[in-house]
């Protein structure tokens, strides 16, 4: 009978190592199924986070053969022959085995000023499909944080975490910046407070996104271009001078305090 060999990283903040498990191979299984069978048979104390098993909750993020992936969406029979390596997400502090502390992401989410619509007109708010469809793509995000995990800005440079929100939250800023009812000017905020300039658009966030969101092309570059409007475009600068428009500062832009 065919077998599947899995090398799972076991350990916590004090250290750890790989443990190898060999089980019978079942047709159609995903990596999370095998991890569950390991828990059921050989290692009941193996820690892993999971919930829906359908690629929609974003809980079972890990690195499979070195690639950030959802364990529930990675079929065993689509991986190359040989042992399968499963490790926790590298960017975040380890709690135990495959479980990491992703609090950094929640803190970053909290820092983003919320939608600030204008006062409600008598007839109510009205939006058109072409105005909201760009943001709808970003709403598919399941917050698995694989894009945050793969982003080398914080993956390989821990010191940047203080200044850089990461692709998921820059995408959130882009979504709000494109929102037809948002009155905040978030360009300065993205540049000065959330570290948009750190992104060197290597597109790894797009490559690993299980929802297929074009994070780099549709959000990060779009946001960078809006910053160019405000800072680096001579034609836009001339237009502002002629029309007597002014840029807002980061402090003015983030007019609505975070909750």
């Amino acid at each position: 009978m065919a077998e599947v060999t899995m090398r799972v990283w076991r350990g916590d903040a004090s250290g750890g190592d790989f443990e190898t498990y060999t089980l019978p191979k079942n047709e159609g299984e995903v990596v999370l199924d095998v991890v569950h069978r390991i828990q059921a048979t050989e290692a009941p104390d193996l820690a892993c986070r999971w919930n829906c098993k359908a690629g929609k909750c974003g809980s079972c993020s890990a690195e499979i053969n070195g690639k950030p992936s959802l364990m529930c969406m990675t079929r065993v029979d689509e991986l190359p022959e040989g042992p399968i390596t499963v490790t926790p997400m590298k960017t975040f502090p380890i709690i135990r085995d495959l479980v990491t502390d992703v609090s950094f992401n929640f803190a970053m989410a909290e820092k983003i000023p919320a939608l600030l619509p204008p006062p409600m007109p008598a007839e109510g708010y009205r939006m058109f499909q072409e105005d909201v469809q760009r943001g709808q793509e970003f709403r598919k995000c399941i917050e698995c944080f694989l894009c945050q995990d793969v982003c080398h800005v914080i993956r390989d440079h821990e010191d940047n975490k203080e200044h850089y929100a990461g692709p998921r939250f820059l995408m959130r800023i882009a979504e709000l910046e494109m929102h037809p009812l948002d009155t905040n000017d978030r360009r300065e905020y993205a540049r000065e407070e959330m570290g948009l300039g750190f992104c060197n658009i290597t597109k790894c966030c797009t490559e690993v996104c299980p929802e297929g969101i074009h994070i780099t092309d549709n959000a990060l570059i779009a946001l960078k271009e809006r910053v160019v409007d405000a800072h680096y475009d001579p034609v836009a600068w001339l237009g502002r001078k002629i029309l007597r428009r002014t840029k807002r500062t980061a402090a003015e832009a983030a007019v609505q305090p975070a909750p």
Binding site: T91, P93, I94, A107, E162
Partner: peptide, 15 residues
């Protein structure tokens, strides 16, 4: 990171 809950950056990584 100072938010509603204080997040300490750094810490040992797995793998």
């Amino acid at each position: 990171l100072e938010t509603s809950t204080k997040v300490v950056l750094g810490g040992a990584r797995g793998g």
